[in-house]
Simulated assay, not measured.
Amino acid sequence: MTGPAEPDPRLTAAPGTPVVLHRLALAVRPLDAHTRGPAGPGLRVGWESARIPGRRPGPDDPVRALERHEPSGFVLRYGTSGAPGEVGASVRVRIDDPARRWIPRRFAVALWTRAELAAADDAAPTGPRVRADARLLLPWLLPGPAYPVPQGMTGLRLRVTRPGPGSAEPVRWPRIEAFGPGGALLGWAHGDEHGQALLLIGGAAPLPFPSPPRVAIALRTHAPDPAPPTGGPRPPDPLADLVAEAVRRSASPPGPQDLDNDVLRGLAPPAGYRTCAADTVRTLTVGQVLPTDDLLHTTDRPVSEESRTCPST
């Protein structure tokens, strides 16, 4: 004989329409340009927005930190409030390292909008989806003055300057390319607000083997034009004059050029930059990273084929 049936403890409810509180707007995963691995820890990654109403301005305005997530890196999400300062169709992202291991970068990134993502969700499961990797930014960070250089690397520590009224003045945020025998691109570097750059050779193409102890290379500089004013009080935002490089929106699914291109690698000179009138020849000591004389960036000399030719060794 069996006793009375036990009541079913489960609760059932008719399915309803889910409310989505957050959607991924952008994931940022900075890469070390030398190792191609993740850069960090200790990076500051944020997005630039208008001051939040009712909040007292602070030293970090106008930057709001992105959320730290693993393994995505840093995440920006669409919320539901629609309050002032919310994310729009594009966003300015900045990345910097207080320890100066990597050179800061800024990007103006076109986004999949909240309305487009919501429409894709409403069309699920049969409609087109906006994949998460279509909302991924993979910027390369170039080594800074305090970068931990592996033993046995070949490179140069240098400073880019331009002619000044009295003496040469540092170029803020310069870019440098290094060409080896036969015109091969051996590497590139970014400079900081003092014009200082760390150029490590071998990331783009290896040195010829067997390498002689010393190798001549041609260095080509790119710099903002016109030059920002010097002197005066220090600006409240130290990265205000760092160019925001335009990044187009990825397709879904993203193509190879969406996630890896010359802009993200830091190889394409940004808009508003001018290339030096002539390359400068320097000599590498293989297996060492040594300081070298300043590179003088000028754009007022005529450009000839001979001045742009890389040295042969």
Rank of each mutant, 00 (worst) to 15 (best):
P163A: 09
G287C: 13
A227R: 02
P256I: 05
T230G: 13
G255R: 09
H34M: 09
L296Q: 05
A27S: 14
S304R: 13
R51T: 10
A205N: 07
V19C: 13
V87E: 03
G152Q: 06
S304A: 12
D237F: 08
L242D: 00
R68Y: 09
V20Q: 07
L141H: 04
T12D: 12
A132C: 10
D60G: 09
Y78L: 08
G85D: 06
A27R: 03
E48F: 03
D237H: 07
L185N: 08
L295K: 01
L136R: 14
D293H: 13
T280C: 06
T313N: 14
V247T: 00
P270A: 05
L31Y: 06
G183H: 08
F209A: 15
P311G: 11
E177V: 08
A223G: 02
H22W: 14
P18L: 13
S72Y: 11
R36G: 07
G231Q: 13
R68I: 10
T12M: 13
D97I: 06
A65G: 07
H22S: 15
P71S: 12
D192F: 02
V215R: 03
R55L: 15
G183F: 11
R92D: 02
L43C: 08
G58E: 11
P291M: 09
P59L: 10
G164L: 09
G46C: 03
V303D: 09
V87T: 14
L267Y: 05
R234A: 15
D258L: 03
L186D: 01
D293F: 02
G195W: 00
T309P: 04
D122N: 11
P269I: 04
A197E: 00
P208Y: 04
H194F: 08
P170E: 02
P228F: 04
L24R: 07
S211G: 11
Y273Q: 04
A99T: 12
P128M: 13
A246P: 05
S90G: 13
